[in-house]
């Protein structure tokens, strides 16, 4: 047994400490790059506010800059920011007049709900379609599913969103155009939950369709690959029912790449949410980030980016752990 192997076996604590150090290093690295990248953008928050006001005086701009801390040299601003990051303080949005953490927490539930709904939809429907396509490989069902998946894969999200609104809201009048609830009605309790559910359908489907296509293709491809392996042939030879083979032997083993994809979807969902939240007036984090960029509200934007980079790192660890759970042969180092 090698020395490294010994440490790994004897001290999981050391392993985790090393991992945490890596995470901290990555997060601080991301924070630093974000800070300087965003400061390259021309214009600042005071100019944007003066621009929106339609008029300004030099005194007004100077007062704003002083209030925002923009009158200080960049290295001092960076020092303050880094100090905040190390103490997990996300800072203050002067434009909104609220702490960044409060702004993020206000918007987080809406985005989390949208994210959970769209991932569940994409995963369940995508895996089911992929499963069906793999079992009917080469048949008409397979062709139809593959064409549909390709269509969803290739169509831009915002366009799908607008088309769904026109069909299901304006023409058929089944679902609301946007927003998260019917404010005028003032629903409470179950009625409110149902109302939010109705508002959730279109944005969740829109956000999920692209990943649904990926899951469909991935499930199909990896199931077909596993169908060709020896243990499946053995199971067939033993006389196991085809449905049971498909579920127990093939699908379970085909899940690994899907878990990888799930991790990537979680990481990229904020980007997708920007478009979908804009099209459906969904009051979430993606829109908050997008607007913060145009308003040069860098404290807020940096806070959101930092929070989402931590989320991505955590999701990656969770995916690694899930590998070990799904396939005991995978070792976590």
């Amino acid at each position: 047994m090698s020395a490294v192997g010994l440490i790994q076996r004897l001290a999981p604590g050391v392993r985790w400490a090393r991992r945490l150090a890596q995470i901290a290093f990555i997060v601080i690295g991301i924070a630093t790059v974000n800070f300087f990248l965003l400061h390259l953008a021309p214009g600042d928050a005071a100019e944007v506010m003066a621009g929106e006001a339609g008029a300004a005086t030099p005194e007004f701009m100077a007062a704003l800059r002083e209030q925002f801390g923009l009158d200080q040299p960049l290295y001092i601003q960076f020092g303050k920011y880094l100090g905040n990051v190390l103490t997990l303080n996300l800072g203050y949005s002067f434009r909104q007049g609220l702490p960044v953490s409060r702004l993020i927490l206000d918007r987080l539930p809406a985005t989390a709900l949208l994210m959970a709904a769209s991932i569940t939809f994409a995963l369940v429907a995508g895996a089911a379609l992929g499963f069906l396509a793999a079992r009917r490989a080469g048949h008409l069902t397979d062709t139809i599913i593959s064409v549909i998946a390709l269509l969803f894969y290739a169509t831009p999200v915002f366009w799908i969103g607008v088309v769904l609104i026109v069909i299901f809201s304006v023409w058929l009048d089944w679902l609301p155009v946007g927003g998260m609830a019917t404010i005028e009605a003032g629903y409470q309790g179950t009625a409110y939950a149902l109302d939010v559910g109705r508002h959730l359908v279109l944005p969740a489907v829109t956000l999920g369709l692209f990943h649904l296509a990926i899951y469909t293709r991935l499930t199909r491809a990896s199931m077909l690959q596993i169908y060709g392996q020896d243990f499946v042939r053995t199971a067939v030879a033993k006389g196991v029912a085809p449905g049971r083979i498909a579920v127990r032997h093939v699908l379970r083993n085909a899940l690994l790449p899907i878990v990888t994809m799930l991790g990537m979807q979680l990481g990229s969902i904020l980007g997708g949410a920007i478009l979908v939240e804009t099209v459906f007036s969904w009051p979430g984090l993606g829109r908050l980030a997008f607007e913060a960029l145009f308003q040069r509200d860098l404290n807020l934007l940096l806070g959101i980016l930092l929070a989402s980079s931590i989320l991505v790192v955590v999701v990656n660890i969770a995916v690694d752990l899930a590998y070990g759970f799904l396939d005991p042969r995978v070792e976590i180092s």
Binding site: V162, V170, D173, V177, G179, V279, F280, S281, P283, R287
Partner: peptide, 22 residues
Amino acid sequence: DRVIFKIIPDAAARSAAFEKGE
């Protein structure tokens, strides 16, 4: 009795909200 200002960031969604009478 009441005025509600909705924030609808997408221009196409604003048109749709008018068409639907929302």
